[in-house]
Design a protein around this nucleic acid. Structure first.
Length: 510
RNA sequence: GGUCUGUUCGUCUAGGGGUUAGGACGUAUCCCUUUCACGGAUAAAACACGGGUUCGAUUCCCGUACAGACUACCA
C-alpha cells in the first residue's frame, strides 16, 4: 500500500507572496489533488528580523482568491500542527541536541566579527570560497576546538552560540530529483551550515527537515533555488535517522525576467508594466501600493491556467484547462527543466479566452460595479446588452467600461482624424434624413430596424451608405471604430440616438 | 572564483537516432466584417558550438560557450 501523498507549500512571511511562489503552491496543490493526497501550508517564520505583518494574511487571501486552498494550515489546523514554525520553536531543539549527541553537530561561539575576520583572511589568502567547513572550523571557537570544560563554562555562562552541522570531510551525497534525475555533490563543497541560531530559533535547513518529517511530507516540490542546499538536507535526514522516509524532491525551474537574464523580480514587473504580486500589496516600508494580478483584471482561472503552463505541459496540444482538468492532467514527470521567461502577453491571451467564455450575465456584474463607482445606474438587461457587444474586444473586465463608455455617455468630442477624412456633405445629409426617419418611426428600435431606416435614407438621397458609415459612427460614438453600429443603435434607443445626431450636426465643424 | 542546474522558432513548448522538427503567444498577410475587434486561413521564424559513437545525430556521450541558481546566525 502506498503512503498517502502529503505535500506542502512553505512560504515565509517576509513580504508579499510573489507570482513564482503562487506557481509553486499551484504545483503542490495539483499534485496533491491528482494523487488524492493532502496539501499543507506551513509558515516559515523563523527569521524574526524579516517578519512582515500582514504577509501571512496576504498568503491566505491569495490562496482563497485562486481557490487553491490548503487542507491543513495555520487557519485550518490538522493533526500535525502547529503550522507556524515560530510556534514550533520548542520542537527543534531536541533534534539539534540529538545531532550534537551523535557527533553530527557542534556548538560554535564565534562572533560575527570573528566570522568576518575569518572570511577576510581566507579571501586575502585567495581561498576561493571562504566558508566555515571541515578545514576552517579547526581554527574557530567551537566545541570541536575548545576543551570540553571550557565549552561547558561558556554554555553555563550563557555565552551566545549557534549549533552547526558537522559536514563530513569526504563523502559523496546523492539525491534523485524527480525533475532533474540524479544530482551528486561532494561534501567538501558543502559548509557547516548553522542549524540553530543564537536566538534559539532554527534556521530554514533544520526547521524544514524536522517539520517535513513530523508532518509526514512525502514530496517536496519547491523552486530550483533550493537545489544547492538539497544535499545538506539529505545529510540532515540521514543524521536524524529519517533517510528511509525522506520525501522525494522535485525542484521546479525558475521564473525568469521577460527580457534579459535572471530571476523575475519586482523591478522587471515595474519596468514592463505588469503585476508580479497576485493581489494588491502595500509595501509597509515605503507605503507604495503595488497592483496585483487580481486588481489588474486577471481572472483567477486564467491566471492559474497561465501559471500551470510555465514549466509544465500536458504533452498534447491543448492549452485551455479548467482547474479540474489541470488536476487530471498534471504530473511531475512532465515538468520541464529549464528556466521560463515570463511573457505577460500569454497571460493576457488566457485572460481574453476566459473572459469570452463567461456569460453576458456574469460579466455584467463587473460592468455594473465599475458604473456604480461613478454613480451611474443602469438596469441589468442593458448592462448585459452592452457586455454582449463589448466582450469580444476586452482583455480585462475593466475594458468593458473603459472601451464602452460611449454606450452610456454621448461623445463630447470627435476624433479629428476621422472628422477630417470622413465628415462631408453626404454624411450630413444622411444623418439629417436618418434623424427625421427616426422621429417618425413609432416602432421599437432594433438593429434590423435601424439598418433598414438608414438604408432607406441613403437610398432616397442616392448616396452610397458605405461611404458615410464611418461618419455616422463618428457622430454617435465620437470615434471611427467599435462594435457593430446597428447593435449600438439598438442599445442606445431612438431618443438618445436623435440627441447624439443633433449634437454631432451642431458641433462638428465642416 | 567554486558547487550545482540548464540550452528546440522572439516567447512558452512538443518531439526524439532516419520527421516537410508539431502546437500556442506575439508578428505579417489574406478572408469574414459597410469600421475596429473576434473568428478563420496562410506565412516568416528554432534544434548554441565543436568533437566523438553510429550507415545516419537535433536526439546518445564528451568538451566548449552562454545562461541561471546557490555560495548569511535569509528563507
Amino acid at each position: 500500500m502506498n503512503k498517502e501523498v502529503r505535500v506542502r507549500f512553505a512560504p515565509s512571511p517576509t513580504g508579499a507572496l510573489h507570482i513564482g511562489g503562487v506557481r509553486t503552491a499551484l504545483y503542490n496543490y495539483l499534485f496533491a489533488k491528482k494523487t488524492g493526497g493532502k496539501f499543507l501550508l506551513r509558515i516559515e517564520d523563523t527569521d524574526q528580523n524579516r517578519f512582515i505583518p500582514g504577509a501571512e494574511k496576504y498568503i491566505q487571501d491569495v490562496l482563497d482568491w485562486l481557490d487553491i486552498k490548503p487542507d491543513e494550515s495555520p487557519w485550518n489546523s490538522g493533526e500535525v500542527g502547529p503550522y507556524r514554525q515560530s510556534e514550533r520553536k520548542s520542537m527543534y531543539r531536541e533534534y539539534a541536541q540529538y545531532l550534537l549527541d551523535n557527533g553530527h553537530a557542534y556548538y560554535a561561539f564565534d562572533t560575527s566579527e570573528e566570522l568576518e575576520a575569518m572570511r577576510e583572511r581566507l579571501t586575502a589568502a585567495r581561498v576561493v570560497s571562504p566558508q566555515y567547513n571541515s578545514i576552517t572550523r579547526t581554527q574557530m571557537r567551537n566545541s570541536l576546538t575548545l576543551p570540553a570544560d571550557e565549552v561547558k563554562a561558556l554554555l553555563d555562562a550563557g555565552e551566545p552560540y549557534v549549533i552547526r552541522i558537522k559536514i563530513p570531510r569526504k563523502e559523496e551525497v546523492r539525491l534523485n530529483d524527480m525533475v532533474r534525475g540524479w544530482v551528486m555533490v561532494h561534501s567538501n563543497s558543502l559548509d557547516d551550515k548553522v542549524l540553530m541560531k543564537s536566538d534559539g530559533m532554527p534556521t530554514y535547513h533544520l526547521a524544514n527537515i524536522v517539520d517535513d518529517h513530523l508532518m509526514g511530507i512525502t514530496h517536496v516540490i519547491r523552486g530550483e533555488e533550493w537545489l544547492p542546499s538539497a544535499p545538506l538536507h539529505v545529510l540532515l535526514y540521514r543524521y536524524l535517522g529519517w533517510e528511509e522516509s525522506m520525501p522525494q524532491f522535485a525542484h521546479l525551474p525558475l521564473l525568469l525576467k521577460p527580457d534579459g537574464n535572471g530571476k523575475l523580480s519586482k523591478r522587471d514587473a515595474e519596468k514592463h508594466g505588469f503585476p508580479i504580486f497576485p493581489m494588491n500589496w502595500t509595501d509597509p516600508a515605503s507605503g507604495e501600493l503595488l497592483t496585483g494580478f487580481k486588481e489588474a483584471g486577471y481572472l483567477p482561472e486564467a491566471l492559474l491556467n497561465f501559471l500551470a503552463f510555465l514549466g509544465w505541459n500536458p504533452g498534447d496540444q491543448r492549452e485551455l484547462f479548467t482547474i479540474d482538468e489541470l488536476v487530471e492532467a498534471f504530473s511531475i514527470e512532465r515538468i520541464g527543466k529549464s528556466g521560463t521567461k515570463f511573457d505577460i502577453n500569454k497571460a493576457k491571451w488566457y485572460n481574453e479566452q476566459y473572459l469570452r467564455n463567461k456569460s453576458d450575465h456574469e460579466l455584467s456584474a463587473y460592468l455594473l460595479e465599475d458604473l456604480s463607482k461613478e454613480g451611474i445606474k443602469i438596469n441589468g438587461e442593458k448592462a448585459e446588452k452592452i457586455v454582449s457587444v463589448m466582450k469580444e474586444r476586452a482583455t480585462f473586465p475593466s475594458d468593458l467600461w473603459k472601451e464602452g463608455r460611449f454606450m452610456i455617455f454621448p461623445p463630447e468630442n470627435f476624433d479629428e482624424q476621422v472628422v477630417a477624412k470622413k465628415w462631408n456633405q453626404d454624411a450630413i445629409q444622411v444623418l439629417n434624413g436618418f434623424k427625421n426617419k427616426l422621429s417618425e418611426n413609432k416602432e421599437d428600435m432594433t438593429a434590423e430596424k435601424a439598418k433598414s431606416l438608414l438604408e432607406a435614407t441613403a437610398n432616397d438621397l442616392e448616396i452610397k451608405l458605405g461611404k458615410v458609415m464611418q461618419a455616422i459612427r463618428l457622430a454617435v460614438t465620437g470615434v471611427g471604430a467599435g462594435p457593430d453600429l446597428m447593435k449600438i443603435f439598438e442599445i442606445l434607443g431612438k431618443e438618445e440616438l436623435i440627441k447624439r445626431i443633433d449634437f454631432a450636426l451642431n458641433n462638428i465643424k465642416y
